[in-house]
Amino acid sequence: MLQTISHNAQGKHDVIAFKLTDQDFCIDIGLVREIRGWSPTTVLPHAPHYVRGVINLRGSVVTVVDLSARLGFGASEPTHRHVVIIAMHEGRIVGLLADLVSDIVTISDDSIQAVPDIASDPAHEFITGMITFDDGRILRKIDLMQLLPDAPQYGG
């Protein structure tokens, strides 16, 4: 499994960075199985607004979560520039709809800062840490666990 190789050196690991509107986010590369181009989804009735629907991933039914909607930026209008990041989360596979994958970045664990206490923003609860770079860029690290509530909370 990819999870096991996410730590490439002591105290360092790789993340996949992507954009949502004009902000940079990232998730641990160990969780990511592959990145696909956007393709239309099959709508799921009674689904939460951020669940875009399901797609066929080599025979498996995979839910696509619209990250933008989930983080409170409003629903995405997917174009060919959008991607679906296929991630594995506690044995379940999920697709994350994002604007554009910008990079794979190696970060050191000590560069991760706590999230400043900006209460009430919906994004706050999904971001576990902030990574600052010398050029002033900031990566917001997303916690998949928080992003995807347990199965029973999804359904109708």
Partner: peptide, 27 residues
């Protein structure tokens, strides 16, 4: 028949999913 619950959860009125000839999923 493809499980919907495996990666998502139960949807009322829907028992499972399948994959159609065009590769798309149908409930």
């Amino acid at each position: 028949i493809k499980s919907l619950e495996e990666n998502y959860g139960r949807v009322s009125g829907v028992s499972a999913a399948t994959i159609l000839g065009d590769g798309k999923i149908a409930l």
